[in-house]
Design a protein around this nucleic acid. Structure first.
Length: 396
DNA sequence: AAGACTGTCAACCGCGCGACA
DNA sequence: GTGTCGCGCGGTTGACAGTCT
């Protein structure tokens, strides 16, 4: 279709890679590492541009790539992270080890997007399509806005994680090559370990969830700076992350001060039913306009309010417990992942009540409540996903 | 059997960003 | 401060295989 050449140089090969080319590239990288991608093709004796080589390596030849069908768990992860991050495939890929961003992107476009659309869920907003209008009515827009703030912050945080993982991968590349050459014949048993940075960054994130949790901001020195990306978290177990350079990209409109107010210090997911009574948490965001927006998750319901930032006190200590009623999550994942035809055959109301049926049943008295419930389940499941570190997850 | 249609996925392209001189 | 280079990301394309008519 008359594409313009990707490289200035004429005579470079394009199109599908031959096994011989693969072998050359593989052999060269195993021996020397990729170094400069631009210089690689000539050194490796390939008639390709460096970009093409890089793509071939990262998307196909790399040894730490898992191919084949996506598991249900992986599908769920992709959907949830996409709700949070949008089309940031590389960031999503960092949470799916052994999957490439290209593969995830393809899978989303060919499978998941269609499935969501088929179910009447907007694959972009991840909301039921007819809720898009409802959401602008009354106070719901406020909630939507608050949730959007959460998403922005989470997005920034996950980007930072992604960067850390990438940097770590670079650092560990030489050891990967070494491992490659020494374990060449051991094939899949010699998988590349998860980069340590991932664990480290997720440790940071566990600060959201760990016992003791996030202390109140003023008394305990919770400090999230942007754009220098210094995150300091002082508590009995001091966690101090200085994600230097540009690791955290916080949207300029939002410099978040996260403040958790919880009644329990337990990090463990409470048994179903417990959380309704004895846990609550607040997520507080401080916007550039000094509005203090508090998201409260009390007794299983999201509420939102805006305070004058300067009048806000320190808040009590204790940890957040962003635990999620697993039944809620199941409702969510059922909706997304189970037999779509069956779900499709249900009316919207039926679908909602199905998804929420585990949640006390009679909550869906009106569309507004439904909206609350939908959002609650949806974001609960996302928070749960993000809160569970890869090391805790069965898939990592 | 053959052509049309659809789904899948590897690969390409353009753009933006960071590093460096 | 500016220009250049190299890299990575996300969007898009096109070849191929499978399915339908």
């Amino acid at each position: 279709m008359g594409r313009s050449p990707c490289c200035d140089k004429v005579g470079l090969k394009k199109g599908p890679w031959t096994p011989e080319e693969d072998q050359k590239l593989l052999a060269y990288i195993e021996e020397h590492g990729h170094g400069s991608w631009r210089a690689l093709p000539t050194k490796a004796g390939l008639q390709r541009c460096g970009k093409s080589c890089r793509l071939r390596w990262t998307n196909y030849l790399r040894p730490d790539i898992k191919r084949g069908k996506f598991s249900l768990q992986e599908e769920q992860t992709i959907i949830q992270l996409h709700a949070l991050l949008g089309n940031r495939w590389s960031a999503i890929a960092t949470h799916l080890p052994k999957r490439t961003d290209n593969e995830i992107k393809n899978y989303w476009n060919t499978h998941l997007k269609k499935r969501l659309a088929k179910m009447g869920i907007d694959p972009v907003t991840h909301k039921p399509k007819n809720d898009a209008l409802l959401s602008t009515v009354d106070g719901q827009s406020k909630n939507a806005s608050n949730l959007s703030h959460m998403a922005q912050w989470e997005s920034a945080r996950l980007e930072a994680e992604a960067r850390l993982v990438r940097e770590s991968k670079l650092r560990s590349h030489s050891s990967l090559i070494h491992q490659l050459t020494s374990n060449k014949m051991e094939s899949s048993s010699s998988m590349v370990p998860m980069p340590c940075a991932a664990a480290r960054s997720l440790d940071v994130f566990k600060g959201w969830n760990v016992g003791g949790g996030w202390p109140a901001s003023k008394s305990s020195n919770v400090d999230l700076e942007s754009p220098t990306s210094t995150l300091t978290y002082n508590s009995s177990e001091h966690i101090n992350v200085n994600a230097s350079a540009s690791a955290v990209v916080v949207p300029p409109i939002m410099q978040p001060m996260i403040e958790f107010v919880g009644s329990s210090g337990s990090s463990e997911t409470k048994e179903e039913g417990d959380h309704d009574q004895d846990w609550k948490s607040h997520l507080s965001f401080t916007s550039g306009l000094h509005d203090h927006i508090t998201m409260s998750l009390e007794a299983g319901a999201w509420t939102g309010e805006v305070h004058d930032h300067h009048q806000e006190g320190g808040g009590g200590g204790g940890g957040v417990s962003s635990n999620v009623d697993m039944a809620d999550q199941e409702g969510f994942t059922d909706l997304l992942l189970n037999n779509s035809d069956e779900v499709q055959s249900l009316s919207d109301g039926e679908r909602r009540s199905r998804g929420d049926s585990d949640n006390g049943g009679g909550s869906g008295s009106g569309s507004g409540s439904d909206y609350y419930e939908d959002n609650k389940n949806y974001w609960n499941s996302i928070l749960n996903l993000v809160n569970s570190s890869p090391s805790d997850s069965p898939m990592f």
